[in-house]
């Protein structure tokens, strides 16, 4: 039988616990539950959801149960990097360095693309003149 979406609540005290994303959607439609879980064991508790596909208002929706997240972090749970990034963007954690790096890389890529397109246009014009 599949464990319930809200988690089983069963865990071993000594095992390591991680708050991480768990892919739940179907093909081409990712949807994540943010869950506390130890590997190879059923989920302990669901702490939220994350939908990476923007909706019609161009929003990505995330829900987080801050109270339970606080509780589990207080009990020594680890947080995976994607969840750390999400919590950073939510203002719950300090912003993760990876977020800054990705933002900077994206900005650089767009700038390079723009420069390339400008230079290509300039070359085209020169050819027409000749």
């Amino acid at each position: 039988m599949l464990p319930p979406a809200s988690g089983t609540g069963i865990f071993v005290n000594s095992s390591e616990k991680v708050i991480r994303l768990l892919r739940q959607g179907c093909t081409n439609r990712p949807f994540f539950h943010i869950r506390r879980k130890n590997q190879h064991r059923p989920v302990i508790e669901q702490l939220g959801t994350f939908d990476p596909m923007p909706n019609e208002h161009n929003e990505k929706l995330t829900s987080l149960n801050y109270e339970r997240i606080r509780y589990w972090i207080g009990n020594g749970a680890h947080v995976s990097q994607p969840v750390e990034q999400l919590l950073g963007l939510a203002g719950f954690f300090p912003i993760h360095p990876t977020s800054y790096m990705t933002a900077w890389r994206n900005r650089r890529a767009t700038k390079e693309n723009q420069e390339k397109s400008i230079s290509v246009e300039a070359d085209d014009k020169n050819e027409v003149k000749q």
Binding site: E59, R68, N106
Partner: peptide, 23 residues
């Protein structure tokens, strides 16, 4: 406005909405 982080420009093209679902 809770915080201004212009360093995050370019990270996302869409808004991110975070909801507290505490019971």
């Amino acid at each position: 406005i809770l915080s201004l982080d212009p360093e995050l420009q370019g990270l996302e093209t869409s808004k991110m909405v975070f909801t507290d679902i505490t019971f």
